[in-house]
């Protein structure tokens, strides 16, 4: 079985020359959920931005092979159309653009890029409403401008809706639990778990073990100083909760 995603000796710097990703290697097979845990400042969020193509980072080495292509050669929208989805830690507010129009444009931009038939408005609205129901997203939230005036929980539910609608092959969840209370965490986790399938993989980035009670990973990695310093099973998350990251920080140093 070919891996879904292979990160090979990846090096990246922030504009200005500070090294953030420092020789990272990671292989994820189809259907697997990997968690990346690590202390603040380890470069976890940067990893999510480098994978999704955010401007402001320079790739100084390595490659990221995703479904047969080097992701690093693609623009952010092409990466998305190829099946990558980044669930933002802090989803942005877009005044003046209605949620429904945004979803419609996103879905059809991707379909167009892949040479698929675009969805009509009624088709899309029906699909969005069905998915919205499972996440507690009502018609009003779909009419409102994207994320404007949404609570932290509503924003994350909105991210989950986008993920469910876009049906990516690979989801990067960047601190998906930040800003969530327990109830919202359950709703979002249920949405994410519903997406688990033999073809789809996920990378869950988090500081805390708590999220991993809800989204149970197959593999847990400890990330520090821009690379993976330790890998284990899902029980590693519990160990980290007890011991903290100190031992891995010295290991990296």
């Amino acid at each position: 079985m070919a891996p879904l995603l292979e990160i090979k000796d990846l090096h990246a710097e922030i504009a200005g020359g500070r090294k953030i990703i420092n020789g990272m290697n990671l292989t994820i097979n189809p259907g697997e959920v990997h968690a990346i845990m690590g202390p603040n400042g380890a470069g976890k969020s940067t990893l999510s931005y480098v994978l999704s193509g955010k401007p402001g980072y320079e790739i100084t080495g390595g490659e990221v092979i995703f479904r047969g292509v080097n992701l690093l050669d693609l623009s952010p929208d092409e990466r998305a159309a190829h099946g990558l989805f980044l669930c933002f830690q802090y989803p942005l507010e877009i005044p003046g653009v209605s949620n429904m129009a945004f979803l419609h444009t996103a879905v059809n931009s991707q379909r167009k890029k892949r040479g698929e038939v675009e969805l009509t408005s009624p088709e899309l609205v029906r699909k969005v409403r069905e998915l919205g129901k499972t996440l507690g997203i009502d018609a009003d939230m779909l009419k409102r401008p994207v994320n404007v005036g949404f609570s932290g929980g509503e924003k994350k539910r909105n991210e989950t809706l986008q993920m469910m609608l876009l049906e990516p092959y690979f989801c990067v969840l960047d601190e998906a639990d930040s800003g969530l209370d327990i109830d919202a965490l359950k709703v979002v986790s249920n949405g994410v778990n519903a997406l688990r399938s033999p073809e789809r993989s996920m990378l869950v980035i988090t500081h805390y073990q708590r999220l991993l009670d809800y989204i149970v990973p197959d593999v847990v990695h400890v990330f520090n100083a821009g690379r993976i310093v330790h890998t284990g099973g899902k029980e590693l998350a519990l160990e980290l909760e007890a011991t903290g990251y100190a031992q891995y920080q010295s290991e990296a140093a």
Binding site: S52, G53, K54, P55, S75, P76, D77, R79, A80, A81, F85, L86, F88, P91, L92, E93, I94, F102, T105, A106, V107, S109, Q110, K113, Q162, L166
Partner: peptide, 15 residues
Amino acid sequence: QIKFYLMARGIPAKE
């Protein structure tokens, strides 16, 4: 930042 958010959802830069 907003432009990147839109692009990360598959919307080309110009769009």
